[in-house]
């Protein structure tokens, strides 16, 4: 379980997170929605320990990760997986080596065992036969799939998705969402999806939390969010120009 308690972060006098409180139960797919530049990615970087907050706590299975040193944080990260916005594939190595990378570096598996798992992971994300391609030679959607295969190959307990469908066409977007759901069913991880894909995200996530002006203004199931009376949520999911969210 992940518990975020009163998380505050300020950059150059600009308070990006203003006391975030959120609980994410085990095995749940939680989507965090909110307008662009609203601090969603900053929140994600805190969750994976890449940023330290000014104040507040993040409890992962009861351990406050905001106070951990790099060695202890690495122990927590052994159970985390992150799908970055652009995939963050290593562009100097091919698709196969990218997916095999965490296994080669973090496990003592033999090369044949690694091969079996990489082939299986690539099949799971529908990328059979793409082994020798380099990241620059595959499309944006394929890069996300490779990155998902690399993220899931170590079977993490918690997976973070940072805007996994940004910049993709509607068909690829649906296929990535379906892939997230099927892999979630198969691996039973706790998922946190940072997204502003409305309304598609309602069909993917078990629960939704809306981040606005550095605080979580609403949490609930997809139906609860869709029927919310909170003017911030109503404006955001309807894409309205009038309301409490300033349209820039």
């Amino acid at each position: 379980m992940i518990e975020i308690i009163d998380l505050v972060k300020t950059f150059d006098g600009n308070r990006v997170l203003n006391g975030v409180n959120l609980t994410i139960a085990d095995n749940v797919l939680m989507a965090i929605i909110g307008k662009s530049g609203g601090g969603k990615s900053v929140l994600l970087k805190h969750l994976i320990g890449l940023l330290k907050p000014d104040s507040g706590k993040i409890l992962v299975d009861g351990t406050d990760i905001t106070t951990l040193g790099s060695r202890d944080m690495d122990k927590v990260r052994e159970h985390l997986g992150v799908l970055f916005q652009g995939g963050a594939l290593f562009d100097s190595i091919n698709v196969y080596d990218n997916v095999a990378f965490p296994l080669r570096e973090k496990t003592k598996l033999s090369e044949s065992e690694i091969n079996d798992r990489v082939i299986q992971a690539l099949n799971d994300v529908g990328l059979k036969g793409m082994n020798m391609k380099f990241p620059a030679e595959v499309s944006g959607g394929m890069r996300k799939r490779v990155a998902l295969a690399r993220t899931l190959i170590t079977e993490p307990k918690i997976v973070f998705f940072d805007e996994p469908t940004t910049g993709l066409d509607p068909i690829i977007l649906s296929s990535i969402h379906r892939l997230i759901m099927t892999t979630h069913k198969k691996y039973r991880f706790t998922g946190v999806i940072i997204s502003h894909e409305i309304p598609e995200i309602f069909d993917v996530a078990d629960r939704i939390a809306m981040l606005h002006e550095g605080v979580i203004v609403e949490t609930g199931t997809s139906d609860e969010i869709k029927n919310s009376l909170n003017p911030v949520v109503v404006q955001f999911i309807n894409g309205g120009l009038e309301g409490p969210i300033a349209a820039v």
Partner: peptide
């Protein structure tokens, strides 16, 4: 620098690799 802006360095850290 390109590895930094394309989050490849963050990816290494997130895999608990230094």
């Amino acid at each position: 620098g390109i590895m930094r802006i394309s989050e490849q360095i963050d990816a290494l850290s997130s895999m608990a690799l230094n």
